[in-house]
């Protein structure tokens, strides 16, 4: 077994070439659990912790987007200034594990594992993020919707590193809400992200833990757009919000497992989406 402690992206990519099939490790908060439970036997490992390129983020002025390195820890997403640009991501980050996990865990790892319960993923989906992949001799950009393929399956090739994601800076409400049987540090039983693009006139919704992979509720979104004007400010009635929640819930396909039941998950999605839309409605309005 070889462990390469890469200090640059180039080194990491070369290591992947030299050790085909090597596992990447960023925070290790998914990978080490797999190892400890004997679900994986490690042969070669390429550690990304010291690759500074992956730990940075910046605003791309021309396109009004944020380029967010795959190794940025959740703890940084929770904090200013990132939390102001990407409030739903900050909220999702806050729900991940404990402070120790958030100090180490990353979006690169969340994408790499691609669990339907990964808390970063609904946010990336609702924001129509772009995933940047890099190999030694090529780079490619995939839409998040093309990247996530199924339960713990994604479009990454073995010789590729996820280097970053690009997310739009939008005007309007963004919120994330997650249901679990504990008030902190709990794996999602159902979660939802609602993003309002006040300029583009869209409301987008993505759901976690209620299907083999994250669900974008495109039919409900189109229905909402047909019902009301989605350019700022929103004027959504409680009845409309309730119906929107119901329609979003109809688009998921949850299962029964030891964490919850399909019926509860579907119900929770309807409630979360309704509540998030009402929050979007209140966003920017004075409390009176």
């Amino acid at each position: 077994m070889t462990v390469v402690n890469a200090t640059s992206l180039q080194q990491a990519l070369e290591a992947l070439r030299d050790h085909p099939g090597a596992r990447l490790v960023q925070g290790g908060t998914d990978l080490m659990v797999e190892v400890n439970f004997n679900r994986t036997t490690l042969h070669d490992v390429v550690a990304l912790r010291r690759v500074n390129e992956l730990k940075r983020w910046h605003i791309v002025e021309d396109s009004q987007t944020i380029h967010l390195g795959a190794g940025v820890p959740y703890a940084e997403m929770e904090r200013s200034p990132l939390c102001h640009h990407l409030p739903a991501l900050a909220q999702a980050a806050r729900t991940v594990g404990s402070p120790q996990i958030r100090a180490a865990g990353s979006l690169g790892g969340n994408l790499g594992t691609c669990s339907p319960a990964g808390d970063g993923l609904p946010v990336l989906s609702a924001l129509d993020a772009t995933v940047h992949l890099q190999s030694l001799d090529a780079s490619r950009d995939l839409s998040i919707h093309e990247f996530m393929l199924g339960v713990k399956k994604n479009a990454r090739q073995p010789n590729e590193v996820i280097v970053a994601v690009t997310l739009p800076i939008l005007d309007g409400f963004q919120g994330y809400a997650k249901v679990g049987t504990r008030n902190a540090m709990v794996i999602s039983a159902a979660s939802a992200c609602v993003v309002h693009d006040a300029i583009g006139g869209t409301v987008r919704v993505a759901l976690g833990a209620v299907a083999p992979t994250v669900v974008r509720t495109r039919e409900a979104e189109a229905w909402l757009a047909s019902q009301t004007n989605l350019t700022a400010p929103l004027t959504v009635s409680p009845e409309l919000a309730r119906e929107f929640g119901r329609r979003a819930a109809a688009e998921c396909s949850p299962i029964d497992d030891h964490r919850s039941t399909a019926a509860y998950r579907r119900h929770a999605i309807a409630v979360l989406v309704e509540r998030l839309l009402l929050r979007a409605n209140d966003h920017g309005k004075s409390p009176q």
């Binding site: 729900t95 994330y176 809400a177 997650k178 249901v179 504990r182 540090m185 509540r275």
Partner: peptide, 11 residues
């Protein structure tokens, strides 16, 4: 954080 749902910001 101190109401039901806590960090999940559900309520």
């Amino acid at each position: 954080l101190l109401i039901p749902g806590g960090a999940g910001l559900t309520a």
